[in-house]
Computed example of a mutant assay.
Amino acid sequence: MKYQTELKDDLLFVRLEGDLVAGKDTQQMIEEVDVIQDGKALLCAIDLSNVRFMDSSGMGVLVSLLTKFRNRGGELVLIKPSDHIRKLLIVTKLNAIFTIAENDDYAAQFLKESIY
Rank of each mutant, 00 (worst) to 15 (best):
T99M: 08
D55N: 15
L48G: 00
L16D: 01
K24L: 11
S114W: 06
N50H: 11
T26G: 11
I46S: 07
R86A: 10
E31T: 11
F13R: 12
L7Q: 09
L65C: 05
C44R: 05
G74H: 01
E6T: 09
I36Y: 02
V33Y: 05
L76T: 13
L48Y: 02
A22F: 08
V21Q: 04
I46H: 07
N50D: 14
V21S: 05
M59N: 09
L76K: 07
I79V: 14
I30T: 10
S82G: 10
E31K: 11
N103M: 01
D9G: 00
S64H: 13
R52C: 08
F13L: 15
A45V: 02
I115R: 05
E75A: 15
D83M: 03
F53Q: 03
V35A: 14
A107G: 08
G39M: 08
G18P: 04
D105N: 13
V51A: 12
D25F: 00
K112Y: 11
K24V: 10
Q28K: 15
T26V: 06
D9K: 12
L43W: 00
D47T: 07
K40H: 12
L65I: 10
V61M: 10
L76P: 02
D47P: 08
D104W: 02
C44W: 03
K93P: 03
K93D: 10
Q28L: 09
M29C: 15
K112M: 15
S56R: 09
R72C: 06
D83P: 00
F98M: 05
N95F: 03
K87C: 02
Y106N: 11
V51I: 15
G60D: 06
H84A: 14
K80A: 15
D47C: 09
N50G: 00
N50Q: 14
T67H: 10
Q27C: 04
L11D: 07
Q4A: 12
E32H: 03
L42C: 04
I46N: 03
E6L: 12
G74I: 02
A45L: 07
A108W: 02
V91F: 09
R15V: 15
T67I: 06
I46W: 03
A108Y: 01
I30P: 00
T67A: 12
L78Q: 05
L7W: 00
G58L: 06
E75H: 12
T5C: 13
L89K: 00
G58S: 08
I97K: 07
E113H: 12
Q37E: 12
V14Y: 04
L11Y: 02
V61D: 05
E31P: 00
K87R: 11
M29N: 06
L11S: 06
A107Q: 05
M54W: 01
F13M: 13
L65Q: 10
T92G: 10
E113M: 12
A96M: 11
Y116D: 14
Y106F: 09
L43C: 03
G39K: 15
N95S: 14
K87Y: 07
Y106A: 15
D105A: 14
L20P: 01
R52I: 10
T5R: 06
D104G: 03
A45E: 07
K93A: 13
I85A: 09
D105M: 09
L62M: 13
L66K: 09
F13P: 01
I79L: 12
I97M: 09
T67Q: 11
M59V: 07
D34G: 11
I90W: 00
F110P: 02
V61W: 02
D38R: 14
T99R: 07
Q4I: 07
